[in-house]
């Protein structure tokens, strides 16, 4: 949420520019948010190629939405992007007729996470990648809403206010949901006995 005045000002400025069909503002929004929207989509649907396509569609839909609406349904641009992403993913599920299953490809060879950290030695890198792969493999086993809040809070670093606005819940409910989701994922991962 635009808690501090500078962020609030920048949000208003960007929205006004987008409404005025400003190309540069759109590119800035794309550069600032594409990675997190991609991550959100990717961890929800579990397929890299489709995540690419959906991310592209989400930005285009957001652009069209801003041109055609007064934005009363979302307080910030970031929240709007996530709302559009959620509805796009739901549409995707409807069209393809399936949800991410345990056997889907979050952890296949093509989607291996590339961790770039020069400070880590090779053994630490291997351990860390193994941990991440394990978590990644367990994420699809979670309930849809659990997975969603974990992605938003712990992977994309959204605030409780932002998650509450995007998901249409109050902050207290989001906090409870996060706690349950984290416990469920931790139990799944620890049940595997590797972490």
């Amino acid at each position: 949420m635009a808690a501090n005045p500078i962020r609030k000002f920048k949000d208003k400025q960007t929205l006004s520019k987008l409404r005025s069909h400003d190309k540069e503002a759109f590119i800035k929004v794309y550069d600032d948010h594409v990675a997190e929207i991609y991550r959100f989509v990717y961890f929800k649907i579990g397929n890299k190629e489709e995540a690419n396509d959906l991310t592209s569609i989400i930005f285009l839909k957001t652009w069209n939405h801003i041109q055609n609406n007064s934005l009363v349904d979302a307080k910030t641009l970031r929240a709007l992007l996530y709302k559009v992403a959620r509805t796009s993913i739901i549409d995707y599920y409807r069209e393809t007729g399936n949800k991410l299953s345990v056997t889907d490809s979050l952890d296949d060879e093509n989607n291996r996470i590339e961790v770039v950290d020069e400070a880590l030695n090779s053994e630490e890198k291997i351990d860390r990648e193994a941990d991440l792969e394990l978590i990644k493999s367990k994420l699809p086993l979670l309930k849809e809403e659990y997975r969603e809040v974990i992605i938003m809070k712990f992977i994309n670093d959204l605030s409780l206010d932002e998650i509450a606005e995007i998901s249409g819940k109050n902050k207290g409910n989001v906090r409870v949901l996060l706690h349950r989701a984290l416990s469920a994922l931790k139990a799944l991962v620890e049940g595997d006995g590797k972490l």
Binding site: F26, I27, Y30, D31, V34, A35, Y38, R39, Y42, F43, A51, N52, T55, S56, F59, L60, W63, I113, E114, V115, V116, R128, D131, L132, I135, K136, I150, F154, I155, N156, D157, L182, L185, K186, V189, L195
Partner: peptide, 25 residues
């Protein structure tokens, strides 16, 4: 556990796709 989850932030789309998609959009 949360720190390990935070490490998933390193997941990112391909640079080449980012650029081509930027132009396309």
């Amino acid at each position: 556990f949360i720190v390990k989850l935070n490490n998933l932030r390193s997941t990112a789309p391909d640079e080449a796709w980012l650029k081509s998609n930027r132009e396309l959009l």
